[in-house]
């Protein structure tokens, strides 16, 4: 890169200005297209192979589940979370309820008890993922999504 710029010494001088222009343009292009990667993670959720969409329940079937219902309030455009019949105020309350219920199930010898998320159609996906996350915080392995409308069947 070093060398004299005296044209008398080197008569075949290279004009570097167009090259600088091109490199500037390339730099600007790459700077604009650069994006810092966000750290992504995943929840593995294997769908049941042996179960259909509806599990028949009889009157005598014991309730062996922890169910969180997510309802959509159309007027206020917010999600209403229910645990049993209790309306959940915040994440801490929901996490505490999941913790207590799951601890009960583990004590009674059913650590495989799932948390079932029963969400309404218009509930934003982030609310559902939030419940999955809270359940994972309490060490719940099995998380199930309640079957809603069967779109494939409805099409036929």
């Amino acid at each position: 890169m070093s060398g004299s710029q005296d044209p008398n010494e080197n008569p075949v001088g290279i004009n570097v200005v167009p090259m600088v222009d091109v490199i500037f343009c390339l730099c600007v292009f790459f700077m604009c297209s650069m994006k810092f990667k966000e750290l992504e993670g995943k929840f593995q959720s294997w769908l049941p192979k042996d179960k259909g969409q509806t599990t028949p329940m009889t009157k005598d079937t014991p309730i062996e589940e922890i169910r969180v219902a997510l309802l959509w309030d159309k007027d206020n455009k917010t999600t209403v979370r229910l645990f049993g019949r209790a309306i959940i105020r915040d994440d801490a309350q929901l996490q505490a309820l999941i913790k207590d219920s799951y601890a009960d199930r583990v004590r009674s010898g059913h650590p495989e008890t799932p948390v079932i998320i029963d969400a309404a159609e218009m509930v934003p996906w982030r609310e559902v993922v939030n419940v999955v996350n809270l359940s994972k915080r309490e060490g719940v392995d099995k998380i199930e999504f309640a079957a809603g409308k069967n779109y494939e069947a409805a099409k036929k």
């Binding site: 934003p124 809603g148 779109y151 494939e152």
Partner: peptide, 15 residues
Amino acid sequence: DSDAPYKEVQRVIQL
């Protein structure tokens, strides 16, 4: 997307 309605996600999972 975090704002996706649950029904759309559910439909993809069902498919």
